[in-house]
Structure formats: C-alpha cells, structure tokens
C-alpha cells in the first residue's frame, strides 16, 4: 500500500483511558526514540470491516488522542491503533485490546449536597453525566446508562468518630436521630453490580446539626 518500510520501534502500551465515557486513547513513545516522533491514529467498530482515520490525530507529536466522539455509542465495541513516524521511518500499527465503553469506563464519585436540622441530615446524591460532545449537547446521566446504579453513603460523627454506611438506590437519604450541635461528614460512592463498577468515595462534605433550642 505504498507504505514506507517500517523498522521504527513500535508505540507501546496503546490503550483507552475512559472516565464517564470520555474515551481517550493513550500510548507511550517507541523505546529509544527522543523528540520528533509523530503519530497517526485510526479506529474501528468491532464487527464492521473498516478502519477509520482520525484526522485531528494525524502527524501529532503528543501521545494521546480523544476518541470520545467516535466511540460514544456504548452498544458497540471498538479497536484503535497507532503508528509512529520519525526521519522517514515508520513503525507497525499497534492496536488496543477490544474496548467496551460500558464495562471499561471508570465512573466519578457522585455529587453530594447535605443540609441539616437539629437531629437529622438530608443528603442528595447526583450521579455524574456521560461525556457529551458539547456543553449544549443533551445531558445523559450515568443513571440512565446503568439502571442498576446505586450509592454507598458514609456518615461520620466527627466527635465520636462513629461511622455509618447506607446503601441507597434512589438519590436521597435522610439520616435521623442525630445529636444536635454536632459536626458530621458525609461521603458517597457509586456502585453498579453488573457490570461491576465502583466509583470510589467522594471527598467528605461536613456540616453541623443545629443546636438544640430547648437546651
């Protein structure tokens, strides 16, 4: 196909890094090559017979390429491939393993908002949105992508250091029978049972219950 004789070492560790279905192809430079290496990228839908070039990632010197747009249909699976060029030489095409956006993405922790009364906390959880092409694009919550999505909520009494865990299916939780005038810290994680996905816990959101007016 008129390709140059490819004796340049290959790009290494070609793989997708995906968070909330923002799917970015990453790789490492070929061994022993300094600056000046350029790359081109192609991708294919598994089961469909053609490779498609990514024009925005042609002759680039960085070692990543955002393929979120091209891999946004999570009912499909994908391969991507990278080729390196330097001083008229080229490498072989180096491929990823088969990428399944639905099971191979990582999920960010949920947003947590907390309000308090004298003896209770009200917690509202918001799942992150799926990556979208532009801010004006339609927002799709990961809740719609993973109907079985649930939350683990941790509530810590800062004074006694006592911690509770709650498993929540919907996005609100009221924690009753708390001590007035006491600081509590809340954090939450998302988990999906199948496919098995865990977001890891969010940072802590701390708030104090109101003081007991009768005391």
């Amino acid at each position: 196909s008129g390709e140059l004789y490819c004796s340049l070492p290959n790009p290494r560790n070609v793989h997708f890094e995906s968070i909330n279905m923002k799917n970015v192809l990453h790789w490492s430079a070929p061994e022993g090559t300094g600056d000046g290496v350029l790359y081109k990228v192609k991708y294919s839908v598994y089961g469909v017979g053609k490779w498609i070039r990514k024009p925005e990632c042609r002759n680039i010197n960085r070692t990543w390429c955002d393929l979120s747009s091209e891999t946004s249909d999570y009912e499909e699976q994908y391969y991507a491939s990278v080729k390196a060029f330097l001083n008229g030489m080229c490498s072989d095409w180096m491929e990823t393993t088969r990428f399944n956006p639905l099971t191979d993405t990582k999920i960010d922790p949920p947003m947590v908002s907390v309000s308090s009364t004298e003896k209770s906390l009200s917690i509202i959880l918001t799942a992150p949105e799926k990556w979208k092409r532009s801010p004006e694009g339609e927002s799709v919550s990961l809740l719609q992508v993973y109907p079985g999505l649930q939350y683990n909520v941790s509530v810590l009494n800062k004074k006694t250091k006592k911690r509770w865990f709650f498993a929540v299916s919907n996005n609100t939780l009221v924690v009753p029978w708390l001590e007035p005038g006491t600081a509590y810290c809340v954090s939450a994680e998302i988990y999906v049972t199948t496919p098995l996905l865990h977001s890891g816990f969010s940072k802590e959101y701390c708030i104090a219950t109101l003081k007991d007016k009768t005391a």
Binding site: Y46, G47, V48, E76, Q77, Y79, T97, R98
Partner: peptide, 21 residues
C-alpha cells in the same frame, strides 16, 4: 471479565461479529 483479555486476544478477526453485526 477474568478471562476476557485472554479470550479476545485469540480472536484476530476485527471485521466480523457473531452477535452484533
């Protein structure tokens, strides 16, 4: 999931799918 990478690596044919196309 434990064997996915191993099994899929044994399938070199990208252009054909049994279930999805």
């Amino acid at each position: 999931t434990a064997i996915k990478a191993n099994i899929q690596a044994r399938d070199p044919i990208r252009t054909l799918s049994i279930l999805s196309h």
